[in-house]
Design a protein around this nucleic acid. Structure first.
Length: 384
DNA sequence: GATCCACGGGAATACACGGATG
DNA sequence: CATCCGTGTATTCCCGTGGATC
């Protein structure tokens, strides 16, 4: 037996003994290419997109439903599939061979407005997806980008944009989306959000598709993910219990599973024990924000959150915490404090009354506690 | 020289409480 | 007793500046 063989053997051995074999499979921020149990929504979106097969522009579509119901999963997978299908034909398309490519003149781009909440960034992202060279992120005017995008679209039949997370804190709402895309008559969108169409403060999109909350499907989702993520898969009883706990929120269920796996692995456990699952659930606040939301925050805000988890002793005021964080980072105390308040306003943190020992004068201080899956956040951050 | 936007810092406003006032 | 006022904090709001890039 030679050395490489021995190494290989050892590697396999370790691999087999390892609890988690694929963290991405358990990661609620990573969507499967084929989401489980939402086929009818795919059909509805494709129905609406049907005109493109005749070279016509389709209507704008609004997909809406509660948190953790698979909306993002659907749109990301659908758009990446469309993008791939089409761009394959696209390269060879150009002039004569138009008939070869059914969707030849259409482009598809997915954008997350959590990262794209200004006119500039929207144009920048769209352009970046359409052209080969990198589009500058600064040093260039918004008008210039608009011109370039116009030029790029001149030769296309149309552009379909999947716009995720509209109408939330710090993201685009439908009215802004309309306004920003108004200069481009060939652009149509599929917007995704939680707000019911009746509550939108702009006239409703032509097509509305409602995504209901998950129910029994969560067990399937957990089992599917568990099978590829855990060396021994996920026990059915545990999957069922997690599903029930999650109340139809697939994100929360996965976040708890991910957290449980993280705890178990840190403890060198060979299987997921019930206590791990308890810890996993514990770290996922009910009605909190999804981990994806946190991971799209600007780098320094994430740094503040990560440091907060380290220095936090639950009973300290925001002021004290801010000072402690500022000492650990190269941000000023003032900025850290402002960040914490901003994060609290956007539900990433929660302000909570804190016991005050000193005099009674003045407004009472509050502390800040996380409203996002902390174990998931910590693990995803410790790697980078 | 122009661009966008994250930072920093400070001004404005909100809140808590005790004491004064009607 | 209800309301107002003053003082001390906490929180929110706003805008100028500068880094990085074109």
């Amino acid at each position: 037996m030679d050395l490489t063989e021995r190494i290989e053997r050892r590697r396999n051995h370790r691999y087999e003994n390892r609890l988690v074999v694929d963290w991405d499979a358990l990661n609620p921020a990573v969507h499967l290419s084929e989401p489980v149990g939402r086929e009818f929504v795919f059909e509805a979106i494709l129905d609406a997109a049907d005109p493109i097969f005749d070279g016509q522009l389709p209507p704008n579509v609004y997909v809406w439903g509660p948190a953790g119901s698979g909306k993002s999963a659907i749109v990301t997978s659908l758009y990446s599939a469309l993008q791939q299908t089409v761009s394959r034909g696209q390269r060879t398309f150009h002039t004569a061979t138009r008939a070869d490519s059914l969707l030849g003149g259409f482009h598809f781009v997915y954008v997350d407005t959590r990262r794209t909440a200004s006119r500039f960034k929207l144009y920048q992202q769209l352009l970046n997806a359409l052209v080969d060279d990198k589009v500058p992120e600064r040093g260039i005017g918004t008008g210039e980008l608009e011109d370039r995008l116009q030029a790029e679209l001149a030769s296309a039949d149309g552009l379909l944009v999947g716009v995720d997370h509209v109408d939330m804190d710090e993201t685009l709402d439908i009215a802004e989306l309309r306004e920003f895309l108004a200069p481009f008559p060939k652009v149509r969108w599929t917007a995704v959000g939680r707000t019911p169409p009746d509550d939108l403060d702009s006239h409703p999109p032509e097509v509305e598709i409602q995504v209901p909350s998950y129910n029994y499907e969560i067990v399937d989702i957990l089992t599917t993910r568990g099978t590829s993520g855990l060396s021994k898969g996920l026990d059915h009883t545990q999957a069922k219990a997690l599903a029930e706990w999650s109340d139809g929120n697939a994100h929360d269920a996965l976040a708890a599973l991910f957290g449980a796996a993280s705890v178990a692995e840190a403890d060198d456990a060979k299987t997921l024990r019930d206590e791990d699952l308890e810890a996993g659930k514990e770290a996922v606040p009910k009605g909190g924000v999804p981990i994806g939301r946190v991971l799209t925050l600007p780098e320094n805000k994430q740094l503040v959150l990560r440091t907060l988890l380290d220095v936090s002793d639950s009973e300290q005021s925001i002021d004290t915490a801010a000072d402690a964080i500022a000492a650990e980072t190269d941000l000023s105390p003032g900025t850290v404090r402002r960040y914490i308040y901003e994060l609290a306003q956007h539900d990433v943190l929660e302000r909570r009354e804190v016991a005050v020992e000193t005099g009674t004068a003045g407004r009472r201080p509050s502390g800040a506690v996380p409203r996002f899956p902390t174990l998931v956040f910590e693990r995803l951050h410790s790697g980078t």
